[in-house]
Design a protein around this nucleic acid. Structure first.
Lengths: 206, 206
DNA sequence: CGAATTGTCGACCGGATTATTCGAAACCTT
DNA sequence: AAGGTTTCGAATAATCCGGTCGACAATTCG
């Protein structure tokens, strides 16, 4: 029959569908990052989208699928920002304040989702591995170096010396941090928070 | 019988009890201000206190009672800060930047609870009236003046002119703002958010 | 020491919430 | 108008959560 026309129409549909999915991801992402996975309700997402709750299920199979899409979306943004920025940066270290600051912000945003992941009993090993595999080792090495030398040369004001070593060591390895955990325990969770604190607040730029 | 000794003992008990209540108020307050009333669970509060949920009910009758205690506690702090600070401030307006900024922060903290109040179907009229009655009219007048002239003289950078009038008008009347609402409707809620936005972010100091 | 009072907690209940489904209506596009 | 696409109200089954209760530990008192 009219197979060609039909397929054209389908492509149109798919585009719209993809756009709507993105809208959901962005909207839901904001809510997830604030309230975590468990505390975020479908009703809430639907309300924020000004849509019936059931409609969302036309685009996503489940709440989890939305959440995972959000994580992937954010991780990709972060990764792209990193790769593009890192190529436009040259020493000296002293001039990198703003650069690092921007990076910090990006990580900060993503770090919100850690809570959400904790909240859920998601197997974050898979997630972390997934993300990590997308980072070029070299990128990480450079970033780590910047921070390391920056801290030594007092470009950054490291607030709490107790955690300095840990912070420098793990800084901007970023998503590798969770690899140290074996299971979800309070103490370990606390340590993560400490690290994140240093990463995003403790090390003050400017 | 041993009425005197007993009463002394009772006072001791009360002090401990009062201390524990305060601990609950502070801990629960942090959670409430982040997640709102509804999304905050007793289990969560208990866990944060490292205590059994049932134990909390030995000190508070209900979740609502905790919440109201939190509001009162915060409101008192804010009120005290206001009254003490306002007496140590003299013109000119241009030097008040930092002062106002600090005030902003204080309001910001309290403003978090507005969400919590919305969240709940609490009759916030009572609450607001309760708080408002503790403010000296004169204090408010002075604060309002500072902001008003500050905005006119461009000491503050008013970001969104659309809301400027509203902001100046209601700024630091602070807790009076809610009096304009008749019921909890989306549009009105949005307007509040706009106002709060202006109050705490829109008007940039420095 | 006991006994009385104060404080803690695990286990549990029933009503409320919530993720998800389904079928029917509304909406396009041809 | 037909057929595919999108929306949504209503129903459901599972889970959650505020609050209770009784047992029991700790402390205070004679």
């Amino acid at each position: 029959m009219h197979s060609e026309i039909c397929s054209i129409a389908n492509i149109d549909y798919m585009i719209n569908k993809e756009e709507f999915r993105k809208k959901v991801i962005i909207t839901a992402g904001q809510i997830f990052s604030h309230y975590g996975f468990k505390k975020t309700t479908m009703d809430e997402i639907a309300k924020a989208l000004k849509m019936g709750k059931s409609s969302i299920y036309y685009y996503f199979r489940s709440k989890e699928e939305i959440f995972e899409a959000v994580l992937l979306y954010e991780a990709n943004i972060l990764r792209n920002e990193l790769t593009t920025t890192i190529k436009s940066v040259e020493s000296p270290v002293e001039k990198m304040r703003n650069y690092v600051f921007v990076r910090m912000k990006a990580f900060e945003k993503l770090s919100n989702y850690y809570n959400a992941i904790f909240d859920k009993n998601l197997d974050h090993f898979n997630f972390v591995e997934n993300i990590r595999s997308k980072y070029d080792r070299e990128e990480l090495a450079i970033l780590r170096l910047i921070l390391y030398h920056g801290a030594r040369k007092k470009v950054f004001n490291v607030v709490n010396s107790e955690y300095t070593a840990l912070a420098v060591q793990t800084t901007l390895k970023g998503l590798e941090v969770p690899l140290f955990w074996k299971k979800k325990e309070d103490k370990i969770e606390l340590r993560l928070n400490a690290v994140l604190d240093i990463l995003f607040h403790g090390i003050l730029v400017k």
